[in-house]
Design a protein around this nucleic acid. Structure first.
Length: 475
DNA sequence: AAAAAAG
């Protein structure tokens, strides 16, 4: 009657122990379904909702199938620059995160994981490859570059994973991905993972696999909706001129933890972050026009709660896993239903609840119609909403009297601007001007009590996109 | 058309 553990699935004791160190004992459904097939070396197309454990679903098999110095077969295996496994991701930050997860889970096995991606100096990555590495995680451009220069040899990659596979097999990436796969052994194990897996992509993916098992974990939602039930979704008609005003009121909602705001363009992301900062919020932007250092600095500041608002393009829509993200706001309507699913999936992860808000302006109406239909959200056209609307305040639990500017008295968090964020930079070139303004790092509000499935359902009347009953403890 | 990914 007790829940199965990783050991029950034949996971190596060192990996079980490392997972236990991380507080992970019982496999999530996608992991339980994947492990028996993947540990046997078979190809897999794995689909599971956002935030339900896909990374370890392919990560554990990777780590387990890698030979380590204690294995007999190890002697002639690792040559410089010749990893035993490869994972490819569509963005650099996701590569960093996946590598971090693999490193943690593989720590006790002594698995050497290397992240390889552009925007960073070439030499350190070359040096690390030369020293020897078991698993490489990277983005396509730099992987190809390193392989072309002869620093990376993929002929020993027995296991290859395409994370966010539908994106990796999309037009923009396909040629690169094909090229990478062509450098790996034909006998490799191939695994494709994503929360969104259109039939056409599955069909395309099969071309690069041999007799793959298609695994679809329903998750613990016990339904066939494509979005996570624990994410409460709201949609408003918004006017461009009123959006920042609406935003800054939403950011003052009760029980707001970390918040991600998505825009469709880099310019808008930058502008919104500026606007919010000017209004007293602790916000950072992340998008592809920033240098890689600034991108990672923004991620770090957000993960550590030095800023509690991250304004992003779709560079951060997929895969990014930050604890305590309670709100996702689509400042601009996402392009399609896949991006919608991924964006809102930055919250409501690993059993937590979340709130997703989408602004739909006049131009977006047809687009939103398609999204709503594709996901079967079953909701009427979004209602006209203004920053001062009672509906907005009630839906999102915004205190009465809230205005569009953070009151001076509560600007403590905002006080830590550039200087403190800079302190997080790895170059450590802080100018020694710390200490003025806000003192000490302030934890983001309510960091101590993230909402979980077990927390009491909030009982206000609200307009929901999901018709189903209030989702508090649906477990 | 935009974003991402090599520089």
């Amino acid at each position: 009657m007790s829940e199965p553990t990783f050991a029950d699935f034949g996971v190596h004791p060192d990996i079980c122990a490392a997972l236990k160190d991380l507080g992970i004992v019982h496999p999530f459904p996608i992991q339980a379904m994947t492990l028996p097939v993947a540990l046997g070396g078979h190809d897999i197309i794995g689909q599971a909702k956002t935030g339900t454990g896909k990374t370890l679903g392919f990560g554990i098999p990777i780590l387990q199938r890698v030979a380590t110095p204690t294995d007999a077969a190890y002697a002639d295996l690792p040559k410089p620059g010749r990893p035993q496994a490869l994972a490819v991701t569509p963005t650099r930050e996701l590569a960093v995160q996946v590598a971090r997860d693999l490193e943690r889970a593989g720590a006790r096995r002594g698995v050497r994981v290397l992240t390889v991606y552009g925007g960073r100096a070439y030499e350190p990555q070359v040096d690390a490859l030369r020293k020897g590495v078991d698993v490489v995680v990277g983005t396509p451009g730099r992987l190809i570059d390193l392989a072309k220069q002869g620093h990376l040899d993929l002929s020993g990659a027995r296991t290859v994973v395409l994370d966010e596979a539908d994106e990796m097999l999309d037009l923009g990436f396909l040629p690169d991905v094909e090229r990478i796969l062509s450098m790996t052994p034909a006998s490799r194990q191939t695994m494709l993972f994503s929360a969104t897996m259109p039939g056409a992509v599955v069909a395309l993916g099969r071309r690069y696999m041999s007799q793959p098992t298609h695994i679809r974990a329903v998750g613990d939602d016990q339904d066939d909706s494509k979005t996570v039930k624990a994410i409460e979704q709201f949609v408003y008609r918004a006017h461009a001129m009123d959006k920042v005003e609406m935003l800054s009121r939403i950011l003052q909602a009760r029980d707001r933890g970390l918040t991600m705001i998505f825009s469709r363009t880099k310019r808008t992301a930058a502008r919104v972050a500026d606007d919010l900062t000017e209004r007293g919020f602790a916000a950072a932007a992340i998008h592809g026009d920033l240098g890689q250092g600034a991108r990672e600095q923004a991620m770090r500041a957000f993960r550590h709660g030095k800023v509690d608002v991250l304004v992003a393009t779709d560079v951060a829509a997929r895969g990014i896993d930050v604890e305590n993200v309670t709100h996702v706001i689509n400042y601009q309507c996402p392009e399609d239903e896949k991006i919608y699913v991924h964006r809102i999936g930055r919250t409501g992860r690993a059993g937590n609840t979340g709130i997703a808000v989408t602004f739909v302006d006049w131009d977006d109406l047809p687009r939103w119609g398609l999204i709503s239909k594709a996901l079967d959200l079953g909701i009427p056209e979004p209602e006209e909403t203004y920053s001062s609307s009672a509906q907005l305040y009630a839906d999102l639990d915004i205190p009465e009297g809230t205005t569009g500017r953070l009151p001076k008295s509560s600007q403590t968090r905002a006080g830590l601007g550039a200087e403190q964020i800079e302190d997080l930079g790895e170059t450590g070139k802080s100018s020694g001007r710390r200490g003025q303004g806000a003192r000490g790092g302030h934890a983001p509000k309510r960091a101590d009590s993230p909402p979980t499935r077990d927390s009491a359902p909030r009982s206000r009347t609200r307009r929901r996109t999901h018709g189903a009953a209030q989702g508090g403890g649906a477990a």
